[in-house]
Design a protein around this nucleic acid. Structure first.
Length: 561
RNA sequence: CGGGGCGUAGCGCAGUCCGGUAGCGCACACGGUUCGGGACCGUGGGGUCGAAGGUUCAAAUCCUUUCGCCCCGACCA
């Protein structure tokens, strides 16, 4: 392509409402434009990148014998009603009616529709397994779109679905996808990791997420440098460092108006790890008291795994249920109250609220003074010990770039997607679903590969292989050489963008660095007089001067290095 | 949904407190000089100040309502 003909609206200044590096650079380098909150236009360069990623996705999906299909994004409500998700999912689903007042929604994902198809077409175990995938638009009315293309309301997703006759088949397809995902993200040049994750509203029991480390990420994962344990902090297990065990006598302490952990620790001159934080929540089955150590926080999702959906209690509810004001609650002496305590509280001696206005109690021990159901319900923090090997965990911020779920029979049962096994028994198909967000791969690649001048694309997903930069378009020899190289590169299947604009050298260099094509071939008058051009690596900024005749060969070498 | 911020030329911003001619830089167009890291000089075009209503002789500026966008949190197949 010729730069002069291609729509590449680069920006000298970053638009004020962009924050994430990938967002700023995608806008500045002319890859995307925003239409509205959470809606992005992919410009020619941006679309080329997505094309590159899609090509890799298709290759690797086909390598595990997944078959590409394409499904509508407009879905009749009935199918979503049959699985219950029409009602479970709230404002996140775009809903609409057709001219006959029939309910529809825009697809947030395609479990329902894929399963519907399977239910109609699959009869026998002989039809299984099947793996179907598509690269298709999804729509979700996100509560808060953010960070450019990282969280949008309309986005493209590679989603695949496996259909198996038995658990072994599901395990195999799950593993095939995990392996394919590793190849995909490696090929896309990303640093990433696979972590255990919470299946959330997908249902089913088992899932992993693929995470690309980046400060722009929304998720956090805990990683063990010792044994390789890795999990989303939503479920990562960790052992907080032990507290020094103080042999306090049990005694009430007057703590007037000291309600928060901070206030009480300051007042008693004790660090927070000597306290028990008692939090009252209201679950579907009534109030539950959750206990964590004073230096810890309750993780809502971990708690939800134990007690189901819940919400924090209001101040008045605390007083009604416990008979004492929030701030002075403790775990002792409650009847008919479910108490869930973080495992680390089983050891040690603590201070907690005395269930008495303006008093705390010092010298409390688990099992002697109170009891609870013990679960890991605290948020894993940097430096806490791995439950498997004891090494200190690292907590890192990450972008979720893919996920894999074992769905089991949740959708097949609801939609009656059944088959007859070899004994003639009717059984629900066992399913898995597997997603990857191409735009997130692109954003993560930028987040992980940029410098002060702009993007540095991994070679595999760059919009072009090389950018050809004739510096002076008014110099006849320069232009002739540029044209010659341009055609030669194309003839050799090297994708080339030639900056044939009549711009000053500085502008071309700045734009080239911003756009981030990994190899630059620079044609300047002085070098050309010696029959030389420069080949420059975008990443290292190192340039070598080579003979014009050797350009193809040297470029090849750089492209594959 | 809670909290915060912002809407003035294509982009980045000033002007708003204290009402009185709508400005600056970049970009754009034209002429000239320049030409290996976002050139310089000159000339010029471009704005219903997010929208609606109100106060006032007079509103970008004050009041009310509303819409949009960003950030933090909640939420998140």
């Amino acid at each position: 392509m010729r730069f002069s003909k291609m729509f590449i609206p680069t920006l000298r200044e970053a638009p004020a409402d962009a924050e994430a590096i990938s967002h700023i650079l995608m806008l500045r380098a002319g890859y995307v434009r925003q239409l509205a909150s959470g809606l992005y236009i992919f410009l020619p360069l941006g679309w080329r990148v997505l094309d590159k990623i899609d090509a890799i996705l298709k290759e690797e999906m086909e390598a595990i014998e997944a078959q590409e299909i394409s499904m509508p994004i407009l879905h009749p409500a009935e199918i979503w009603q049959q699985t219950g998700r029409w009602d479970i999912i709230g404002g996140e689903m775009f809903r609409l009616k057709d001219r006959n007042e029939r309910d529809f929604c825009l697809g947030m994902t395609h479990e329902e529709i894929m399963t519907w198809l399977a239910s109609r077409e699959i009869r026998s175990y002989r039809d299984l397994p099947q793996v179907w995938f598509q690269i298709q638009t999804k729509l979700r009315d996100e509560a808060r779109p953010k960070s450019g293309v990282l969280r949008t309301r309309e986005f493209i997703m590679k989603d695949s679905y496996s259909f198996d006759a038995d658990e072994e088949g599901l395990d195999r397809n799950y593993q095939l996808h995990a392996d394919a995902y590793h190849r995909i993200f490696n090929r896309c040049g990303l640093r990433f990791m696979q972590v255990e994750s919470d299946p959330g509203m997908m249902g089913g029991g088992y899932s992993h997420e693929f995470m690309a480390p980046s400060p722009a990420g929304e998720d956090q994962v805990a990683l063990c440098p010792g044994c390789g344990y890795s999990a989303n902090v939503e479920l990562a297990l960790s052992i907080p460092h032990k507290t020094e065990d103080r042999e306090w006598q049990t005694e009430e302490v007057h703590t007037p108006e000291k309600r928060t952990i901070h206030e009480v620790t300051t007042f008693l001159k004790l660090s927070p790890e000597f306290f028990i934080k008692s939090v009252l929540v209201i679950s579907d089955n009534g109030p539950v008291l959750a206990l964590v150590r004073g230096d810890q926080e309750v993780h809502e999702k971990k708690l939800a795994k134990v007690i189901g959906q819940h919400r924090p209690a209001q101040k008045v509810e605390v007083k009604e249920i416990l008979g004492v004001e929030a701030g002075f609650i403790g775990p002792m002496g409650h009847q008919n109250l479910r108490i869930v305590g973080d495992t680390c509280l089983q050891e040690g001696t603590y201070v907690s609220g005395a269930n008495k206005q303006h008093y705390h109690v010092k010298g409390i021990k688990a099992e002697r003074d109170f009891t609870a159901e013990w679960h890991d319900i605290h948020i894993a923090k940097q430096g806490e010990a791995c439950t498997k090997c004891g090494a200190g965990l690292n907590v890192e911020r990450v972008i979720e770039i893919g996920n894999i779920f074992k769905l089991g029979t949740k959708y097949s049962e609801a939609l009656k997607a059944v088959f007859l096994d070899e004994h003639g028994n009717e059984k629900p198909i066992i399913m898995g679903s597997y997603g990857i967000g191409p735009a997130r791969i692109a954003a993560a690649a930028i987040e992980q590969n940029n410098d002060k001048d702009g993007i540095i694309w991994p070679r595999s997903i760059a919009p072009f292989n090389v950018e050809l930069i004739p510096l002076n378009m008014n110099d006849k020899a320069t232009v002739e050489t540029a044209e010659k190289l341009y055609h030669e590169l194309k003839k050799n299947y090297i994708e080339v963008l030639m900056d044939d604009r009549d711009e000053r050298a500085g502008v071309k260099f700045k734009d080239a660095d911003l756009i981030g094509i990994p190899v630059q071939i620079i044609i300047g008058e002085k070098n050309l007089r010696e029959g030389l051009v420069e080949i420059k690596d975008r990443k290292t900024k190192e340039a070598v001067r080579v003979k014009v005749e050797e350009v193809i060969e040297k470029t090849r070498a750089l492209m594959t290095s």
